[in-house]
């Protein structure tokens, strides 16, 4: 086990990502293919980056490599200069569907990371309760995951990662399974937490509105094999209000993203069918 040096909240010197010519191969033998091709980017400490791309383009794969669950075939992937090799609580990950432990109540779910590090019960429960307040679930410590709504489950999931004070927060379509209203609330909550903690966030989404509302920067990926086709800086000032989504500058940027994502003739990706025949991202 390496470095457990704890950092104070709000300390933004750590969390810089450097990706340099990263290739990731998936599959075995004859079925092996490159899911991510020659991806390079840098994320300064404390930045909020969204990765936007069509389904199956390799977003989750890239995130898995940042988490240390998948090793790149080529290239360098570092966090604060240290190569990423294997998972570590410094790099927390949140998935689309919660991965809470149904046999533990909310408090013990959040205290899982500290428990794995051998922190005594009283102390890890204190830490869990502190984070519960931060995400606005103070009264739910004794509930079990199945007794919570989908939005609450995702909040607990985020809390379980934050209790480890990660330098990097990786999120794979974390709000993708929530209804529109809950999703908006979760987006604002996440921005609020991020403003206070200033961890670096890499956030994957299909949803252009979500990416533009949340991010400092949006990395747009091409269909499989995944490459980064554009690196968009989002100019909207913070704190952002939910209403900016309806304003003209937002609309212009959105149209630009839509053009980037729309499958071009001649590419071999199949457009997903939708009942209205509309392109999948034009919702």
């Amino acid at each position: 086990m390496s470095g457990h040096e704890r950092r104070a909240h709000g300390h933004a010197e750590q969390g810089r990502i450097d990706a340099e010519g990263v290739f990731i191969r998936l599959g075995q033998g004859a079925e092996a293919f490159e899911a991510v091709q020659d991806v390079s980017f840098t994320v300064p400490a404390g930045e909020f980056v969204c990765v936007l791309g069509p389904s199956g383009c390799g977003k989750s794969t890239l995130l898995g490599a940042l988490a240390g669950h998948i090793a790149p075939a080529h290239g360098a992937l570092t966090l604060d200069g240290a190569a990423i090799s294997g998972p570590h609580p410094d790099r927390g990950i949140v998935f689309q569907h919660h991965t809470l432990f149904p046999w533990k109540n909310v408090r013990d779910n959040i205290a899982f990371g500290p428990k794995m590090r051998g922190i005594p019960k009283a102390e890890r429960h204190r830490q869990a309760d502190e984070i519960l307040e931060l995400i606005g679930l103070g009264g739910f410590a004794g509930r079990y995951p199945k007794q919570l709504s989908g939005g609450m489950q995702q909040r607990v999931e985020i809390a379980r990662v934050l209790v480890n004070h990660p330098r990097l927060l990786l999120m794979d379509e974390p709000f993708g399974a929530l209804d529109a209203l809950t999703r908006m609330m979760m987006q604002e909550l996440l921005l609020d937490i991020w403003t206070r903690l200033r961890t670096t966030i890499v956030f994957i989404t299909h949803d252009i509105d979500e990416a533009l509302f949340l991010a400092d920067r949006v990395l747009v990926m091409s269909p499989r094999p995944g490459r980064i086709v554009e690196d968009i800086t989002v100019p909207f000032e913070r704190p952002r209000r939910a209403e900016i989504v309806a304003e003209p500058p937002f609309g212009r940027l959105k149209r630009h993203c839509l053009d980037l994502l729309r499958p071009r003739p001649g590419t071999d990706t199949l457009p997903r069918l939708s009942p209205l025949g509309a392109p999948p991202h034009a919702r």
Binding site: A67, H69, P87, I93, F95, T99, F112, G113, M116, V161
Partner: peptide
């Protein structure tokens, strides 16, 4: 994913 999440939590 549950296994991965646990690994990333330090297990």
């Amino acid at each position: 994913d549950k296994i991965r999440a646990a690994r990333s939590l330090g297990a």
